[in-house]
């Protein structure tokens, strides 16, 4: 009976729609998935299979040779370590700064709220530009240090807006009033009421900062000069895009690439190794990310 009913209700055009819909989504999924699978398969194939162009979908002559080789490159691991360090320190500073801005801005009791909001929001519309910022970094004596990477981006107006919107929408004003009556100061309210209720948004903002710090190479390109401080992305750029392994910091890689013709497979391995931390963590954090984008889109 039930089935018959739905069958009657489903006109032909709707059935066509469903078929089209399946086709669209399958297509979208394949278009995104295929390049990723292809890279993974190449990275696990024998170098000569990759160089001969015999890989299409799955690994040909399965081999972990590329991975074993990359394991031996000290520069890549140092870059990995640097990226990790910048990511952790930068995320910590960024999250503390974002909370410290968003919490007061979410409180109606703050006098001059509008002016403070404008101060942060304006940075989204206008900035000093590349050279003045570079000069500032030099004048502060933090050029070629970690601080040049982690400090300049720590105030992100967008993240502040997202977090402020969350505080305003999710923490009842009654709680503030009750806490005040109990003699709780604004510090106390922040640590004992607001933060314990804000796990989700703290996760979201940490993720925003972490992904951004791990993936960007801009500040490293501008503000770092020594090889041993370079994050992974700069090293990847030199090997993958500039195709330049002749620099003395890559002497071990260069010798190998010339000798055994494994360059092609190494590039695929590097792509996998460098993207792996985020892509592995991603399914677990996806719902927080989606939440963050939604909170932000409610009140851009």
């Amino acid at each position: 009976m039930e089935r018959k009913k739905t069958k009657i209700k489903q006109p032909t055009s709707d059935r066509v729609f469903d078929v089209v819909n399946w086709i669209i989504l399958t297509f979208a999924m394949l278009v995104v998935l295929y390049p990723l699978v292809y890279i993974l398969s190449c990275s696990f194939s024998a170098p000569r299979a990759v160089t001969a162009g015999r890989v299409w979908l799955y690994p040909v002559e399965f081999s972990t040779y590329g991975y074993e080789t990359v394991l031996g490159f000290s520069n890549i691991w140092r870059g990995y370590g640097n990226s990790l360090l910048y990511m952790v320190v930068g995320t910590a500073i960024g999250v503390v700064t974002t909370v410290a801005a968003a919490y007061p801005l979410s409180r109606k009791e703050l006098r001059g709220r509008k002016a403070f909001n404008v101060i942060f929001f304006f940075t989204m519309l206008f900035n000093g530009g590349i050279v003045p910022t570079y000069l500032l970094i030099q004048n502060l004596n933090i050029y070629d240090t970690m601080w040049a990477i982690v400090l300049p981006g720590s105030v992100s107006a967008w993240n502040i807006i997202v977090m402020r919107t969350f505080f305003e929408g999710n923490i009842p004003v009654d709680l503030y009033e009750a806490a005040e009556l109990d003699g709780c100061g604004d510090f106390g309210i922040l640590f004992r009421i607001v933060l314990p209720l804000s796990g989700a948004i703290l996760a979201v903002i940490s993720l925003f900062f972490a992904v951004w710090l791990w993936n960007s190479y801009y500040s490293a390109l501008m503000y770092l000069a020594s090889d041993d401080k370079y994050p992974l992305q700069i090293i990847l750029r030199q090997i993958l895009i500039m195709n330049d392994t002749s620099n003395k910091m890559f002497s071990d890689i260069d010798a190998l690439v010339r000798k055994q013709g494994v360059k092609d497979v190494l590039k695929f391995v590097l792509i996998v190794v460098s993207s792996l931390p985020l892509l592995v963590a991603y399914p677990f954090v996806q719902k927080y990310f989606v939440k963050g984008v939604m909170v932000g889109s409610v009140k851009g």
Partner: peptide, 26 residues
């Protein structure tokens, strides 16, 4: 509510140094 202003101090200093100081360099 003086504590709110103390909390706001950190981001204000950072935004002043890293976002507004370069504008002077223009």
């Amino acid at each position: 509510h003086w504590q709110l202003y103390v909390i706001l101090l950190l981001p204000l200093v950072l935004v002043a140094v890293f976002n507004y100081a370069p504008m002077y360099g223009i």
